[in-house]
Simulated scan of single mutants.
Amino acid sequence: MSPLLKLAALICFVVVAQAGLSFPFPGQLSIPNTFPQLSACISESSFFSCENTTTISNTCCSPTPGGLVLQTQFWDTFTGLEKKGQLLPKNSWTIHGLWPDNCDGSFEQYCDLSRQFDPTPSPAILPDGTVVPPYTGPGVDTFIKAFGRDDLLEFMNNYWVSQGSPNANFWGHEFSKHATCTSTFDVACYGPHYRKHQDVVDFFDAVVRAYHQYPTFNMLATAGITPSNTTTYTLSQLQNAIKAQTGSIPFFGCTTNGTILSEVWYFSHVHGTEQFGSYKTVDSTTKSSCGATGIRYLERTHTSEREVR
């Protein structure tokens, strides 16, 4: 081996060692698992969240109290950071997050400030007066890299795109505000061999899995609903198009006095954990902010999107 190759191999070994990874055999990196330790759930009762009739004894096995799970998406037409290469995926809505609403539709937020990675908390002060301090450490994208998950990071940069802020800041916000209130992502669920930020990467994986279940752009397009700067749609058209595919009516959000379509929330009960369980869609518990008619599903600025297939 040449001196240059030896140096490269040594640098690679040091980086891997510092990240806490290992080599299963010479020449191949080991990408560690990030899923929780759920062997105790095998003996637990099986049910959909928000449909249990007895108290959940092991909250690592089912999201509680946040058992009404929302997979949320945005339809943005620009990012504001195009010059930095932050572009939207063509012919696809983007990820907003995965939220643990309580079964009655209420919700908690920023439940564990020891896992607060949001540079700009919103709200900065919780209803009980607790101050959420801004995070000033390295971005959560570095957590993903430390676990060797370049595949996950690439997907997130393509489909979990922020408007007006770096993507990693947005991801940190979503984890801190929502995942810390989801019991199946509690640190205790990962067992005695928990590694720092394992829960963060696991949450991002779970969000991506849930997002794949709801291809909003395609579901609307199959019903003849596509972005247009001239055509308008009714709320019933949007709702019926999605209900025909999922069996339930999601929340559609609109801006500008209910006229500009901007977001969708899919409500579900989950059988098992939020990470790997089966999602059963249910009707939205939140009234749409869109008007009944005259809804505009605007085309994107061409310089704000890219082909990512």
Rank of each mutant, 00 (worst) to 15 (best):
S2E: 12
P3R: 06
L4K: 11
A9L: 07
I11E: 12
F13A: 15
V16Y: 05
P32V: 10
P32F: 11
T34M: 02
P36G: 14
I42D: 15
F47M: 07
E51Y: 00
T54G: 03
N58I: 04
G67C: 13
V69C: 01
Q71W: 01
Q73I: 01
F78K: 12
K84W: 08
K84N: 15
Q86K: 03
P89E: 06
N91Y: 12
G97H: 07
L113D: 04
D118I: 02
T120P: 00
T120I: 12
P123L: 04
P123R: 03
A124V: 00
P127D: 08
V132H: 08
Y135D: 05
T136R: 12
V140E: 00
D141W: 07
D151R: 02
L152K: 01
N157K: 15
W160V: 12
V161P: 01
V161L: 08
P166A: 05
W171C: 01
E174G: 09
F175D: 00
K177E: 06
C181H: 05
T184G: 04
V187L: 10
P192L: 11
Y194M: 08
R209M: 06
Y211N: 14
F217R: 09
N218V: 13
L220E: 04
L220P: 00
A221V: 05
A223G: 02
P227K: 02
N229W: 03
T234V: 09
Q237A: 13
L238N: 06
A241E: 05
Q245C: 04
Q245E: 15
G247C: 07
I249L: 12
Q275L: 11
S278R: 13
S278V: 15
S284A: 12
H302R: 11
